[in-house]
Computed example of a mutant assay.
Amino acid sequence: MKIDAIDLKILTVLQQDGRVSNQDLAEQVFLSPSACLRRVRALEESGMIARYIALLDATAFGLEVDSFVQVTMRRDVEHWHENFTAALQSWPEVVGSYIITGEANYLLRVRARNLKHYSSFVLEKLYKTPGVLDIRSNIVLQTLKDTQMLAPELLMGEAGVNG
């Protein structure tokens, strides 16, 4: 789907406030409410809008430890990838998981209440997973930028923006 400057503005506003009313959204992008709703539905149907969520403040819930963990696997263990990816689905502490390049196989983002909780996660879950060879933890000391928003200039890439 090709998007134009109006679609781009709709996407930007929705990323800032996913609960904005269609009326307010239409006013902000200078469309009639019906035309605005048609465009939003087309963006949803195309998959450009994947879903609407509420972003929670982890620290407000007492999750004080934020860490990035590189996990290196032993390749001589049968089904190491399938077993690891299945196990991490059941770990609520893992809020993000990625297959990465480099020495490690995976990068996990882990949230925990405190260092004791984090230590328990590493020792009782992560290290006990068959095939885990090495774990390298990086504890976040201060967050400088943490966003799920995609900047308009990034959105103008391969999807294409007309006008």
Score class of each variant (00 low, 15 high):
39 R>Q: 04
39 R>E: 05
45 E>M: 09
19 R>I: 07
94 V>M: 01
48 M>D: 09
65 V>W: 03
74 R>C: 07
27 E>Q: 13
75 R>K: 14
107 L>I: 01
81 H>V: 13
97 S>G: 06
13 V>K: 06
48 M>A: 11
15 Q>H: 05
10 I>W: 04
13 V>T: 08
93 E>C: 02
6 I>G: 03
82 E>R: 06
42 A>Q: 12
20 V>R: 09
78 E>C: 04
44 E>G: 06
37 L>V: 15
42 A>R: 14
34 S>F: 10
54 A>E: 15
15 Q>M: 09
60 A>Q: 13
57 D>Y: 10
73 M>Q: 00
6 I>N: 10
32 S>R: 08
111 R>W: 10
90 S>V: 08
30 F>C: 15
27 E>V: 10
86 A>G: 08
27 E>T: 12
20 V>H: 03
85 T>V: 11
39 R>F: 06
35 A>F: 09
106 Y>V: 04
94 V>D: 03
62 G>Y: 05
5 A>Q: 13
46 S>W: 01
98 Y>R: 04
96 G>R: 12
92 P>H: 05
65 V>N: 04
76 D>L: 06
65 V>Y: 02
9 K>M: 08
3 I>V: 08
115 L>Q: 11
112 A>H: 04
4 D>R: 06
46 S>T: 07
93 E>T: 08
28 Q>S: 10
71 V>A: 00
70 Q>N: 10
2 K>A: 11
4 D>Y: 06
106 Y>F: 09
116 K>S: 14
42 A>Y: 09
101 T>L: 12
83 N>H: 13
40 V>N: 05
7 D>F: 01
117 H>R: 09
107 L>M: 08
36 C>Y: 03
72 T>P: 10
39 R>L: 05
15 Q>S: 06
80 W>P: 02
70 Q>C: 09
39 R>D: 03
17 D>A: 05
23 Q>V: 14
71 V>F: 02
75 R>A: 13
108 L>I: 03
96 G>K: 13
75 R>G: 15
113 R>Q: 10
7 D>N: 02
21 S>T: 08
47 G>N: 06
57 D>I: 07
25 L>R: 01
55 L>W: 15
86 A>H: 10
49 I>Y: 04
113 R>D: 11
84 F>Y: 07
77 V>G: 02
83 N>S: 13
106 Y>S: 05
6 I>M: 02
115 L>I: 12
89 Q>A: 15
61 F>Q: 11
91 W>Q: 02
17 D>R: 08
91 W>P: 06
19 R>T: 14
58 A>Y: 12
50 A>R: 15
40 V>Q: 03
5 A>C: 11
3 I>T: 06
52 Y>H: 09
46 S>R: 07
24 D>P: 08
25 L>A: 02
